[in-house]
Amino acid sequence: MEPILEVKGLRKSFGDFTLKDISFSLPRGFIMGLIGPNGSGKSTTIKLIMNLLKKEAGEVRVCGLDTDRHVLAVKQKIGFVYDENHFYDELTALEMKRIVAPFYREWDEEAFNYYVDRFQLPVRKKIKALSKGNKMKFALTVALSHQAELIIMDEPTAGLDPVMRSELLEVLVELLQDERKGVLFSTHITTDLDKVADYITMINEGKVVFSVAKDTLQETCGLVKGGKSQLTPEIRDRLIGLREGSFGFEGLTTDRKQMEALLGERGVIERPTVEEIMVYLVRGYGNADISL
């Protein structure tokens, strides 16, 4: 089956920022986390996928359909949740639903009611009066109520408390019980991804740093720690984002096996979290050879 989302060679520039050669692919049935520091190009990538920005080069396919040629068909298949509320403050959630629903051919009122119940959304209140969390839940409810196959989320957990974030993740995992679906999830709160993400794509300074399965990432990368005397030039050269203190050093390796051989019994290599991988890669970006 074709991937649910395929991004090839995307390019876009504004002023001195250029997003280039963004390529990745998300197979059906999986969750992909899109990570990177602020201003790295995550939102731009998502806006290009959603046709909110015009790409200068490259192509995007959703369920095998080119997003430029099948604009409306593609949007039928996408459910979206953005970092900010874009619904009308002046309307109640129910009124807003009445505006949005007619545009979806496969609007599913039952699903809508199910999520409204489950999230205990006060749908008769004006959107202005909803809490930040409820606004996100409402957006999520709309995204899940029209048989969308691809759910695209741009920083959906920004500003949400941990309980609500975990509720969101639970819904996503449930959604993937249907293996035709897929989720693209941009976030800088990477702890959300440590658990549920299947693939991680990292963007930095407008370029893809890596796009791999999270398990592979956590196995090939390692957080190396050791005493100062163990930091031989060979090891030093191979560590990314090296940090030296008075008690020892810490750095990231993208080749755990090689590092184990170099280090012998003397040092420790930990399994890094997604966040650690991101932090070290960003810190060491530009002066390290990063290949995954």
Binding site: V173, Q177, D198, K214, D215
Partner: peptide
Amino acid sequence: IRGLAKELQISVITTKR
């Protein structure tokens, strides 16, 4: 595979592996 991933709240790739 998917049910287990959901229960344990972990990646499907992990359970599949």
